[in-house]
């Protein structure tokens, strides 16, 4: 049923890892999974809020330092999916896809993992630089739900860290994993959803034709799937020039984060 399929790699260290020590992490997750607790625990008081450019969605940003590296954590709106059905979902989707954070950290609820994996799998369709934080492990334990994070990591092909953010448990390990990831010590091989034959064959026909229309770093399989769903608006957000690139890893002002 499941196979590992090729995803365009978007490793962050590529643009000169010796110089960069400032990384952007997008924080995604379903509503009510303790995402803000993770955000607050990681960034402490060093955060500020504003609006997403041109959007009426509140955006929170914070920084933290770990192992001599600086991280800017961007708190995306809590969503069940990335289908651009609401302003929240569109903001989350556009940031993960087009602002190209170095890592997308997805926070999920250990007590209802299945519904949370819906979002995780959708994020994995866009980018391979994903870390999964399975939060509320303490609550799951109380409800006699056992989550095997190693097995989960194996199944998903990305690092998985179990946390209980309310008591601060597992957050150091989370920071270490993020650090290892930006250092290139962890290489992910995300497992992606394989659809039925008809869909897959359509995707295979569409994907190569997209190449000349968009930059390399845009995940074409993902774009092909969205076009099949009729989400043509997406194309308005993608730079049309195949060579177009913009500097990443730099935050100058609000606009720089959400370039589109």
């Amino acid at each position: 049923m499941t196979v590992n399929c090729h995803i365009v790699s978007t490793e962050p260290g590529k643009d000169n890892p010796t110089v960069r020590n400032h990384f952007i992490i997008a924080l995604a997750g379903n509503p009510n999974v303790g995402k803000s607790t993770v955000f607050n625990r990681l960034t402490g008081m060093k955060q500020h809020t504003g609006n997403w450019p041109g959007k009426t969605v509140i955006k929170a940003e914070g920084t933290f330092y770990h192992r001599n590296r600086r991280y800017t954590l961007v708190d995306l709106p809590g969503t069940y999916s990335l289908h651009a059905g609401s302003a929240d979902e569109q903001v989350a989707r556009d940031f993960i896809c087009f602002s190209r954070p170095d890592i997308t950290l997805v926070v999920s609820d250990a007590t209802c993992l299945e519904r949370n994996l819906n979002l995780v799998l959708q994020v994995l369709e866009i980018t391979s630089q994903v870390v999964l934080c399975v939060n509320l492990m303490d609550e799951a334990k109380r409800k006699r739900i056992q989550v095997d994070t190693e097995k989960l990591a194996q199944e998903l092909g990305i690092p998985v860290v179990g946390t209980a953010a309310r008591s601060g448990q597992g957050l150091n390990r989370l920071k270490n994993v993020l650090g290892d990831m930006v250092d290139g010590k962890i290489v992910t091989s995300p497992r992606c959803v394989v659809y039925d034959q008809e869909l897959e064959s359509l995707v295979q026909q569409i994907e190569p034709r997209l190449a000349i229309y968009m930059p390399n770093w845009v995940n074409r399989r993902w774009v092909a799937l969205r076009l099949l769903e009729g989400e043509f608006n997406l194309l308005n957000h993608i730079p049309h020039n195949a060579l177009m690139d913009y500097p990443r890893g730099e935050i100058k002002e609000d606009g720089a984060l959400c370039l589109l």
Binding site: L117, L121, D148
Partner: peptide
Amino acid sequence: SIYQQAEAICRQAVKTGK
């Protein structure tokens, strides 16, 4: 399809007690 996959992964990685 995504939900089916999510369910399959959970069968592997999540154990629910009483």
